[in-house]
Amino acid sequence: MSTQLLYNDFPTFLRKYFPYKVQKISLNAGFTCPNRDGTKGWGGCTYCNNQTFNPDYCRTEKSITTQLEEGKCFFAHKYPEMKYLAYFQAYTNTYAELEGLKRKYEEALTVDGVVGLVIGTRPDCMPESLLRYLEELNKHTFLMVEYGIESTCDETLKRINRGHTYADTVEAVRRTAACGILTGGHIILGLPGETHDTMVAQAEILSDLPLATLKIHQLQLIRGTRMAHEYDEAPDGFHLFNKVEEYIDLVIDYVEHLRPDIVVERFVSQSPKDLLIAPDWGLRNYEFVARLQKRMKERGAYQGKKYRDSEKRIIFADDKLTTE
């Protein structure tokens, strides 16, 4: 854990692998999702609008190379010597036939300055053939697979139209980590029907998985989504963190119950003002982190303070997490 921070942060984690600054560049490689195309459902997740996190350079009509080159121009003014991770972010980035996926991943790795891949996907979209390919790729480049977990509660997953169960998450994370691949997760705090206590309990549940990293985001209501319509119809079914202090205290409770070695990549998401309904805190990411750190110090909190390992013993060796 960083000596300056009270949790395991992502920049410190990256310094274990790279002697220089690295920046993720988001890509939209033209994928869809099985809960969008009718395979498992229609309409996608009820909260989802990919416009909320796709930069202007991130457009499907542009090639992977073009998106990466434009992304590099976007960031290069800050750190000219920076290197980059190609972040396959939009929709489900393992949801296609194997040869097509290989072409996209390998095109990204040919771009000058790209030193690795981060692949965002769903737990039910990691076929064995792709996993075997990624296992081999991992021997030659930095690779992380990031799974959209969102919740450990099947009732919640059904309500938000995810189209998979938490058991799917458990299987996918364990299979991926067993291949020696850095495995990350993404969860959303504040989904309808979940309480403070159930969200904090989630941290202990996820700690049983061999996760290297975790992204934590607050629920955001986004214009044009099915969830925004549901909120208009029945606002009492939602608890939005309109006061940032309430969310900060929840995050601290959550992190205190999280396994100490998991790297927390981020705590908040920031959607464009013109798309965001609520909550609108008017804070940049670094401002939120400063407030979080201040509150953690006030409370004497730190990651893992209240974590209790179950009867399993966590082993962390050669950057591969296992349990026994």
Score class of each variant (00 low, 15 high):
62 K>N: 12
64 I>Q: 02
66 T>S: 10
66 T>Q: 11
67 Q>V: 05
68 L>H: 05
70 E>T: 13
74 F>E: 02
75 F>M: 07
75 F>R: 11
76 A>E: 12
76 A>S: 15
77 H>R: 11
77 H>Q: 13
78 K>D: 09
78 K>T: 13
78 K>W: 09
78 K>Y: 13
79 Y>T: 14
80 P>Q: 09
80 P>T: 03
82 M>G: 11
84 Y>D: 07
85 L>N: 09
87 Y>D: 00
88 F>E: 05
90 A>L: 03
90 A>C: 10
92 T>G: 12
93 N>G: 12
94 T>S: 15
95 Y>M: 07
97 E>V: 14
99 E>S: 12
103 R>A: 05
104 K>N: 07
105 Y>R: 01
105 Y>I: 04
106 E>C: 05
106 E>H: 09
106 E>N: 15
107 E>T: 05
107 E>K: 04
108 A>G: 01
110 T>H: 05
112 D>L: 04
112 D>M: 13
112 D>E: 10
113 G>C: 08
113 G>A: 07
113 G>E: 07
115 V>Y: 10
116 G>W: 02
117 L>C: 04
119 I>D: 02
120 G>C: 08
121 T>F: 02
123 P>C: 02
124 D>G: 12
124 D>K: 02
124 D>Y: 10
125 C>S: 02
125 C>Q: 00
126 M>Q: 00
127 P>S: 10
127 P>F: 03
127 P>A: 10
129 S>A: 13
130 L>D: 00
130 L>C: 10
130 L>T: 10
130 L>N: 02
130 L>H: 01
133 Y>H: 14
134 L>M: 08
134 L>E: 02
136 E>N: 14
136 E>R: 14
136 E>K: 14
137 L>A: 04
137 L>P: 01
138 N>P: 06
139 K>A: 08
139 K>V: 04
140 H>C: 13
142 F>I: 11
145 V>C: 12
145 V>A: 14
147 Y>P: 08
148 G>T: 04
149 I>W: 00
149 I>Q: 00
150 E>S: 11
150 E>T: 09
151 S>L: 12
151 S>N: 10
153 C>E: 15
154 D>V: 06
155 E>P: 11
155 E>S: 14
155 E>D: 15
